[in-house]
């Protein structure tokens, strides 16, 4: 869980920084997006690096979901008779929602790929000019798209809040002081990542990015 999660988080950081290029204007953003297809050239043919990264991330994602499914099945088997009186997990909302939150994030990723990668659900779907795709996507009259993104990203934020701490613990974080630091760090990271992602749709919605 920890290792695959960290791989996916590294991608999330790079993806967020890339998204923020939208504030430098259409030319810069489209140039950046097209550069992603040519990373590694001329050593590698076009798209090879991109597909390599996609395969690696896909494998990490599948391994992450597989490990989560194994844990969930073991948990179910470990308590065949349920408690009659059982209050909700009270320690942490983020920890309680890891499994269903993960399902929501997976569905969101499918929607996001169909929207801004393949373009099937995008009103413009111009492969060469992703800037126009983004602007059309988050237009005020398509407020429900922004809503879907907000739900997806906030769920991701909660997932990371527990996930980052849990990954450090799984890899051997062992002091009480380090635990407080890891929890605070995970919270700050989750909030920063949410803000970095959500600023783009809200900038389009507010007319700052046109």
């Amino acid at each position: 869980m920890a290792v695959t999660g960290i791989l996916l988080v590294l991608f999330l950081i790079a993806h967020m920084i890339g998204n923020l290029k939208i504030f430098f204007g259409a030319t810069e953003f489209d140039h950046y997006a097209n550069w992603l297809r040519t990373i590694g050239a001329p050593v590698l043919p076009e798209d090879w690096y991109l597909w390599g990264q996609r395969i690696l991330l896909g494998a990490a994602l599948i391994a992450h979901i597989w490990a989560a499914a194994v844990l969930a099945r073991r948990a179910r088997a470990a308590r065949p008779v349920r408690y009659v009186h059982r209050p909700k997990v009270h320690v942490s909302y983020a920890a309680r929602t890891m499994r269903w939150g993960g399902v929501i994030i997976a569905l969101f990723v499918v929607y996001h790929l169909l929207d801004l990668t393949t373009g099937d659900l995008n009103p413009v779907a111009d492969q060469q000019h992703p800037y126009t795709n983004v602007v059309a996507d988050f237009a005020p009259e398509r407020w429900y798209v922004t809503l879907v993104y907000v739900v997806g990203i906030v769920t991701l934020g909660f997932h990371l809040r527990h996930g980052m701490f849990s990954a450090l613990r799984s890899l051997g974080q062992q002091t009480p002081r380090g635990e407080r630091r890891a929890r605070t760090g995970a919270l700050i990271f989750a909030v920063a990542l949410c803000a970095g992602y959500l600023v783009v749709p809200f900038a389009v919605l507010a007319g700052l990015v046109r």
Partner: peptide, 24 residues
């Protein structure tokens, strides 16, 4: 079952074994 670092255990432990032992 397997541990997912939730922390319910440490919260009810009558001897207050800290969750950080799991890291060790």
């Amino acid at each position: 079952g397997g541990c997912t670092n939730i922390g319910e255990c440490s919260a009810v432990c009558p001897k207050e074994i800290p969750l950080s032992t799991i890291g060790r």
